Amino acid sequence: MNQAFKDEVIQHSKQIGIDKIGFAAVDVFSTLKERLKTQQELNFQSGFEKGDVEERTNPQKLMPGAQSIISIALAYPSKMKDAPRSKKDERRGIFCRASWGKDYHHILRDRLQKLADFLKEKHPDAQFKIMVDTGELSDRAVAERAGIGFSGKNCAIITPEFGSYVYLGEMITNIPFPPDKPVEDDCGDCNLCVDVCPTGALIQGGQLNAQKCIAFLTQTKGFLPDEFRSEIGNRLYGCDTCQVVCPKNKGKDFHLHDEMEPDPEIVKPLLRPLLTISNREFKEKFGFISGSWRGKKPIQRNAIIALANYKDKSAVEDLIAVMKNDPRPVMRGTAAWALGKIGDEKAIEAIEEAKKKEQDEQVLEEMEKGLAFFTSTTI
């Protein structure tokens, strides 16, 4: 396929709301293949990955006859207008920037489908496979090969124009396009993201232990390991630390897509109301953002931990109610732990009382942890 048609596709991509587009060859991602094997051996994977190593590194396995991969990037905002303040007795949590606005999976699929329609119109025999985040291919590896940006030490694609505040998606197609050249790595000696990662999840430049990454941990549904609870702070979903400290993101804040604009009350919500929110209320309020994909359970657990980290005494009654009445052991146990960390006399009495009726071993263990907080501060 000649350069003229590629230029035509690039021009059309701008008209349909794609901020950056790149084209890559369908060769096996051999470097990624070795990295994935290492990740498996070290148990650094999150468990959310789709497909085996072969499928994740060989486009031909996913679409026989594949000739090219088209990678796209859309820039999202890094700053929120009129953000509400978290204050005493009205503490708030936070969703990461990648969960602001409408779920990006829908936005990128819409753009990629429009692009596919254009390709089909020009070439009726065109075939394509669209992927956004949840597909087998690594969005980052494709974007890197397609010249969208370089893979930074924070494991994000960093573009010259938008920094790392971009959503990525791709399309495998049987249309051959001249490939673009990769962007040169520009992290240099900077190691800020690795140095400030709250849990040490960034092992070295470009290698992530997902099991320790706060962005992953906030999406788990069980009891959060003790060593990560204080590190989560008031995060309800995701973590932006490694992006915020990146010098390449300084001054980068793009408001190019209305559907990506955050509703401050949604992405920085009051914590206490989250403890009693129903499934229906949760879906109505948060269902359209990507941070809701795991349901309300992780968000509620993280809200309890955030209240504990704030030592919010105004939440004691709410937490006692969760500890006594919630049918889910994770919520009861985390609430007991939180009550102990807050350290209110009434909270401690409530833990002692609830302990007499509690049957679940893990919840009882959390209750003991809560009481131990109080004991250590009164000795």
Rank of each mutant, 00 (worst) to 15 (best):
K120F: 07
V9D: 04
F223D: 01
I172P: 02
T173H: 08
H255L: 00
N2V: 06
Q45F: 05
Y165F: 15
K250R: 11
A308W: 06
H123M: 12
D180M: 02
D326G: 01
D263P: 02
C187M: 14
G295R: 09
Q127T: 12
I203Y: 05
I16R: 04
T241Y: 08
C155A: 14
Q211P: 12
T38W: 12
R235P: 11
F177C: 06
Q40E: 15
R56G: 07
S278C: 10
I70V: 14
T378W: 00
K248E: 06
G370F: 02
P269I: 03
G163T: 01
I348N: 04
G233I: 09
D186L: 02
T173N: 09
S376W: 09
D103P: 01
D326M: 03
I107V: 15
V196M: 10
I107C: 12
L112T: 07
I148N: 09
K102C: 02
P264S: 10
A116D: 02
K6A: 05
F374W: 14
N154G: 02
T57S: 13
K369I: 12
T159M: 08
F29T: 03
V132Y: 04
R97Q: 11
R92P: 08
A4V: 15
E41V: 10
D344C: 07
L119D: 05
G93V: 01
I214V: 07
E8M: 10
A308D: 11
A215F: 12
K285Q: 14
N325Q: 15
E49T: 11
D125N: 13
Y167A: 09
D180L: 01
E34Q: 13
R92A: 04
P182S: 04
P59D: 10
N2K: 13
F216S: 05
N2L: 08
P273T: 06
S30R: 06
T38A: 12
E365F: 13
Q219K: 08
S30K: 10
Q3L: 12
C96T: 10
T377M: 06
E366S: 05
G340E: 07
G370N: 00
E54Q: 14
M63K: 01
Q127E: 15
E259F: 00
R145V: 09
A143D: 06
Y237E: 01
V245M: 06
C96D: 00
P77K: 10
L339D: 00
F95E: 04
I203C: 00
L108N: 11
F374S: 14
V142K: 00
G152Q: 04
D263L: 13
P327S: 03
W293G: 01
V9Y: 04
F228D: 09
L271S: 08
L202S: 09
S78W: 08
A347N: 03
Q15V: 11
D258K: 15
Q204E: 13
K221W: 08
E352F: 00
T377D: 11
K285E: 07
